[in-house]
Amino acid sequence: MHPALYVFPIPALVIYIIFFAIPALQAVQYSVTDWDGFSAEYESVGLGNFRNLFTNDSLFMNALSNNLKFMLVVVVFQTLLALMLAIFLVRNSTGSTLLRGLFFFPTILSSVSVAYIWKFIYDPNYGLGNSVLEAVGLGEYTSAYLGNNEQAIYWVAITQVWFHAGQMMVIFIAGLQGVPAELYEAAEIDGAGKWKQFTKITWPMIAPATAIVVAYTTIQSFKAFDLILGLGGLPPRRSLDILSTRIYSTFANTEFGYAAAQSLIFMAFIAAIVIAQRRLLKLTQKEA
Results as ranks from 00 to 15, higher is better:
255 E>A: 14
46 G>W: 07
229 L>V: 13
234 L>K: 13
141 Y>M: 13
46 G>Q: 04
138 L>P: 10
70 F>Q: 08
111 S>F: 11
115 A>N: 09
224 A>P: 01
86 A>S: 12
96 S>V: 11
17 I>C: 14
222 F>S: 00
91 R>D: 13
243 L>H: 07
134 E>Q: 13
111 S>Y: 13
243 L>A: 06
216 Y>M: 15
59 L>Y: 13
220 Q>N: 14
127 G>W: 05
186 A>P: 02
15 I>R: 03
130 N>P: 03
189 I>L: 09
90 V>I: 09
80 L>W: 10
271 A>C: 11
20 F>T: 15
38 F>Q: 10
6 Y>S: 09
144 A>D: 15
31 S>K: 07
254 T>V: 12
242 I>P: 09
139 G>Q: 06
239 S>M: 10
18 I>D: 03
278 R>I: 15
272 A>P: 04
194 K>N: 11
270 I>R: 03
59 L>A: 15
93 S>K: 06
59 L>T: 14
182 E>A: 11
11 P>Q: 06
69 K>F: 11
258 Y>N: 03
157 A>H: 09
253 N>G: 14
210 T>I: 01
95 G>W: 13
176 L>D: 02
96 S>I: 11
269 F>L: 15
185 E>Y: 04
53 L>P: 06
272 A>D: 06
285 Q>L: 13
128 L>H: 08
108 I>N: 07
187 A>C: 04
50 F>D: 02
44 S>I: 12
223 K>C: 01
15 I>H: 05
10 I>N: 01
120 F>N: 08
81 L>G: 04
122 Y>N: 06
140 E>F: 14
287 E>G: 07
95 G>A: 14
57 D>G: 07
54 F>M: 08
153 I>V: 09
200 K>Q: 13
201 I>L: 00
78 Q>W: 03
82 A>G: 04
43 E>T: 12
112 V>M: 14
55 T>E: 11
274 V>G: 04
204 P>Q: 02
76 V>F: 14
266 F>Y: 14
189 I>Y: 01
215 A>R: 01
222 F>D: 00
216 Y>I: 13
95 G>C: 07
159 T>N: 05
199 T>K: 12
286 K>Q: 15
43 E>N: 11
14 V>R: 00
220 Q>R: 10
32 V>Y: 03
249 S>Y: 07
119 K>H: 11
179 V>I: 08
133 L>F: 09
246 R>M: 11
218 T>E: 00
177 Q>V: 05
4 A>C: 06
77 F>M: 09
124 P>T: 09
235 P>M: 03
134 E>N: 13
138 L>H: 09
33 T>E: 01
250 T>S: 13
10 I>M: 05
105 F>N: 05
169 M>L: 06
223 K>H: 11
114 V>N: 02
94 T>W: 14
19 F>P: 09
159 T>I: 05
